[in-house]
Amino acid sequence: MRSVVVTGGATGIGYAVAAAFAAAGDQVVITGRREGPLKEAAQRIGATAVAFDAADPAAVAGALPALPAHVDVLVNNAGGNTSFDRPDPADGDLEALAANWRANLDANLLSAVLVTAALTPRLTDHARIVTIGSIAARQGAGSYGAAKAAVEAWTASIASELGPRGITANVVAPGLILATEFFRDRLTEDGIGQRVAATRNRRAGAPDDVAAAVLFLAAPTAGHVTGQVIHVNGGAYLGR
């Protein structure tokens, strides 16, 4: 039985990942900022809920006593495109532009960096780190795409740093995944159609598609796969 921590585990991809580990018999801790949904999700799958903001250094440090003393698998899923929640900055408003970029970097990059750094002393030898990236790292999407591209570069660094302990670090990069909160109800049928048309298998992804890739990378048999970006987007990252 492994000890698994999944950040952003209350809904969507994070929930599917956590549920898959729990179904496999692992001890799962899910984290997130919204205590209510987090506790409800944990109860449904038999996990433990620890509420905190993964992008806040003080909050991460404060949560450590509630997190496992030994961690076999860490899944950095917390994040999302914060630009959906913020107005576009006016032309020339550099303060607003900087704030928008920092928000996405905090949510998607810093959250993974902080949680991983805080838990590194607790990672067992041959532990697995999987961070959820995005097709946007290759195709671009403003500050969100840049943050996910930075996740890939950072993952390469920690794969090198922690590799001597047998610890692997990889990225799973989804494309369009339905049944999540990512698009904040802004995705139209036309938008779905365009994204599906860009895939090779002509379908949208589901959270379980991503969970399956995460479980593969977390398996004991995947010890020679590290520093990689595994695309779970139907080949859409290849372009049309």
Rank of each mutant, 00 (worst) to 15 (best):
G133S: 10
P164V: 05
P121G: 12
A118W: 08
A117C: 04
A173K: 05
G142I: 07
I158P: 07
A150R: 10
G142C: 10
A150I: 11
I129F: 03
P174W: 07
S134L: 11
V130C: 13
A147K: 02
V130N: 14
L123G: 05
A112P: 13
A159G: 03
A159T: 08
T131Y: 07
R122P: 13
T131Q: 15
G175S: 08
L176Y: 07
A179I: 00
T180S: 13
E152K: 01
V113D: 02
T116D: 07
G142H: 02
S111E: 03
G133N: 10
V151K: 08
T120H: 04
T180V: 13
L123A: 06
G145R: 03
G145S: 09
T180R: 09
G145V: 07
N170S: 09
Y144M: 10
I177N: 15
V151M: 12
A153V: 09
G142P: 01
T180C: 13
R128G: 05
E152D: 15
L176C: 03
V151T: 09
I132L: 15
V172C: 14
W154A: 04
H126E: 15
P174I: 01
T124Q: 12
I135C: 00
L162C: 01
A146E: 09
T124E: 12
A141C: 08
T168N: 08
A153H: 14
R128Y: 00
P174T: 05
A127N: 09
A149T: 06
A117D: 14
I132G: 14
S111N: 04
S134V: 09
L123I: 01
L178N: 12
E181D: 15
T155S: 11
V115H: 10
G163I: 08
A179V: 00
R165K: 15
S111W: 02
W154G: 02
A153W: 03
T116F: 08
G142S: 12
G163S: 14
P164D: 08
T155A: 12
L176K: 07
R165Y: 02
E181V: 01
A153D: 12
A150P: 12
A146F: 07
